[in-house]
Amino acid sequence: MPVALPEVKETWSGKIVEVTLGAGPDKGGTRGRTVTVGGETALPFLHFEGQIPNRPVIAAEVSDRAPEDWSSLLTEAWGGVLEDPASWAARAEELGAEVIALSLDSAHPERGDTGAKEARATVRKVLEATSLPLIIYGPGQIDKDNEVLVAAAEEAKGERVALGNCEEKNYRTIVAAALANDQAVIAKTPIDVNLAKQLNVLIGDMGLARDRIIMDPTTGALGYGIEYTYSVMERVRLAALTGDAALQEPLLVTAGYEAWRAKEARTSEGVPAQWGDWNQRGLLWEANTSVTLLGTGADILVLRHPETISLVKYAVDELMKGV
């Protein structure tokens, strides 16, 4: 006897906003490649339920100063390019990164205290060294973020970079800089749907168009609260697809940063032998964190290890094939 399968397909009324990073010569920029994310009308990779016009993309994290707190697995894998953000960005592009996430970390008062002038020079150098679109992060300290991101926004005028992080206490200056220089922003909130929504609304109130906002909902690494962040992102995406316009921005996750903070990835000392090969473990920690977050709607993944870039890209390739 034939069994009738129930129809389980969902249809959604909402659509994720499409955000384009980078501008080529036709739009007044110099990028050789641009990246568009968002546009989904279905849950991640459920191709049979709706449109998934753009694949999730990989951004490689690049810092303007050689990181001191990175695992030796990372520093060895990258080698000498860590000393120079331009070479680092160029190398990341060779390895398959689709966006460069440049961190102006040296502006932090305790990590170099560099200013607007240095920020401009770094941004210029990196723009020249890579054809990829840029995300530009400040050092995460309010006054210095304002100082260097305003300068960076001006320096990169025409290139449609994303400036981050806009947070509740500190979004106005960054949004103003984005408005004045035609850039996008990254709106970061601490794992809370309503705060995420509120920040998007506040940024929108300042007059920034929706197609220039990317949300970072803050995530955890595998084994370090990923379930919680997974369900928050899931709720963000469900709300967006059911029509909540204030949550329909594409999602960015800093999977590399999170995964490489985990003991399992960072160290080989004092850990049980059963944990196996350290290098393998580190890579997989980052890759698994990434793939898990892909499953809950991540549109941009900021990664750290050169090899995870290709690993995660491979996963995206397979997931985009549909059924």
Partner: peptide
């Protein structure tokens, strides 16, 4: 631009 940003961000 310098003042405009301050006007927009409320400083």
């Amino acid at each position: 631009r310098a003042w405009g940003i301050q006007l927009v961000d409320g400083r």
